[in-house]
């Protein structure tokens, strides 16, 4: 019963499923060496964008993306330098929301439409978002996209089991909360046949992901800003 007094029940909007995957703090490791070996490969990006009805808008300024690839000097602008070796220079890095431990986007949102869950996932309520775009100004990773126009005409092959968005709201990677709740791994993890993406519980010292982090040298993006990204890159 805990803190609830007599007669109170803990209410859930959706009853958590028995088989749902849970964690104290979700995190992701991307093995960029594996990605490099299989370039050009965009399986994870296609899987995510198809599953979540992310529109393919050709006009660059109105682009919407949840996960994409970019070069080292853009992914890690403050770590890149002109003497970096060739391998680093032409390797492409998967970029997505870092589900920060101290997310500036959550701090600035005036409606709590962007919020952090207990398991560390930074979520969006697209029905509450007023489209002020304060979160886009606050995110130091460019992880967020705004629907500058109705996105529906740009979804070629809509997935009926996931909602589409309307114009005027912000969206981004959700760490596939809808899949975790059903006991499935995030779409990008599942889509990568080469096992380049691993997710797990950072809060559990015995978790697989913590073992990997202890073993390999990893980078996180812009750690000096104090945001505490939960996405790690094996170089």
């Amino acid at each position: 019963m805990g803190v609830l007094s007599k007669g109170e029940v803990k209410a859930y909007a959706v009853k958590p499923s028995e088989k749902g995957l849970t964690a104290g703090r979700w995190a992701m490791v991307i093995d960029t060496r594996v990605c490099r070996k299989h370039e050009p490969c965009e399986e994870c990006i296609h899987a995510c964008h198809h599953l979540h009805n992310v529109p393919q808008i050709p006009y660059k300024k109105h682009e919407i993306k949840w996960i994409w690839k970019d070069e080292f000097e853009h992914a890690f602008p403050d770590t890149a330098h002109e003497y970096a070796n060739e391998v680093l220079k032409d390797r492409e890095f998967l970029l997505l929301c870092n589900h920060c431990e101290h997310p500036p986007c959550v701090r600035v949102c005036p409606t709590k439409a962007t919020f952090k869950r207990e398991d560390g996932i930074v979520m969006m309520d697209m029905h509450r978002c007023i489209g002020c775009r304060f979160c886009m100004a606050a995110c130091p990773y460019g992880s967020r996209s705004f629907n500058w126009r109705d996105p529906r005409p740009f979804i070629k092959n809509p997935n009926p089991s996931y909602p589409t968005r309307m114009k005027g709201v912000v969206e981004k990677c959700t760490f596939c909360t809808e899949r975790l709740a059903e006991g499935k791994l995030p779409a990008c993890v599942e889509a990568c046949k080469h096992g380049a993406i691993i997710v797990g519980d950072l809060a559990d010292p015995h978790s697989e992901i913590n073992k990997i982090l202890r073993e390999y040298f990893t980078l996180r993006r812009k750690v000096h800003l104090g945001t505490g990204p939960s996405v790690f890159y094996i170089i």
Binding site: R107, T111, G131, G168, V169
Partner: peptide, 17 residues
């Protein structure tokens, strides 16, 4: 972006913003 939702700022006051 969502003009008619403007009053969400009052409905869900968020003192950290």
């Amino acid at each position: 972006g969502q003009t008619h939702r403007l009053f969400n700022v009052l409905l869900h006051p968020t003192p950290n913003s």
